[in-house]
Nucleic acid binder design. Structure first.
Lengths: 130, 130
DNA sequence: CTTGACCTTCCCAAAACAGGAAGCTTTATA
DNA sequence: TATAAAGCTTCCTGTTTTGGGAAGGTCAAG
């Protein structure tokens, strides 16, 4: 498979696939003309990476997860730990966004939104009078 | 005020303040020795920026908001529009994170987390069997 | 034989800073 | 007073995960 084909099958842009090779997540063969030649296993790995990234795992998390996936003897507890830590980070982000959302929604609701200049949003930003 | 003092008062790191000058958000004076000299107005602006950033506004949003703050004649509707668009972006991010959270939490709950190798989390990442 | 579609590598850009080096100024201390 | 320490300056690099694009080799079709 050339990069265009595996890009289509994996759903990842060719740029991304080259990058993943650069940082050592995959190591495709090369044809005689210098083109990358991808195996089914490469496709498998790229699909894995795509899914893990879609769940918000960082590249380094993905590296860890892939290594675990290839290590037949790792304990499921190890995997669970990585996932749980990621879950905590997600929860923290959600909480932070919701806090911002709350404050901002309040400000927006207080702003008349007409063509007069007085605006509670800017007043708050300037003075901190929430 | 030197940069250290205004950094303490505004709560922003000196690096950040220099960066904000670089990109034209503030334009502090210079003393004869080359040190930046900050006015009360600069402090005011930096506080404004800190609050807006804490609400998740991008630097470009901040630039817009600051310009609006300095423009006595702008309509509050203009400000509200920026804030509402930002609110929508926040909501989108929250929704996306919650969706990821849901999937991941399910996987984590299904994983025994013991010292056996079988792990639903990795199985899902590899095959997409959620 | 040429055109166009792929492929290659290499370099730059993004967002919003953080870290650190080299060097100047000011302040504090011995 | 001498020196050390703190604070300031600019400049360069690195972060994270790609995206865009240039210059150039290769392959398939008409």
């Amino acid at each position: 498979m050339n990069i265009g084909e595996i890009s289509g099958k994996s759903g990842l842009p060719a740029k991304t696939i080259r990058y993943y090779e650069d940082i050592g997540l995959i190591t495709p063969d090369r044809s005689e003309n210098g083109y990358r030649r991808f195996s089914q296993n490469d496709l498998h790995k790229l699909t894995f990476l795509g899914r893990a990234r879609a769940l918000g795992f960082s590249i380094e998390d993905c590296r860890t997860l892939m290594a675990m996936y290839e290590d037949e003897s790792r304990a499921s507890a190890d995997v669970k730990k990585v996932a749980q830590e990621h879950l905590i980070r997600i929860d923290e982000k959600i909480a932070q966004l919701q806090s911002m959302r709350e404050t901002l929604a309040l400000l927006v609701s207080e702003c008349a939104g007409d063509n007069r200049p007085d605006c509670p949003i800017l007043n708050d930003l300037a003075c901190g009078k929430t």
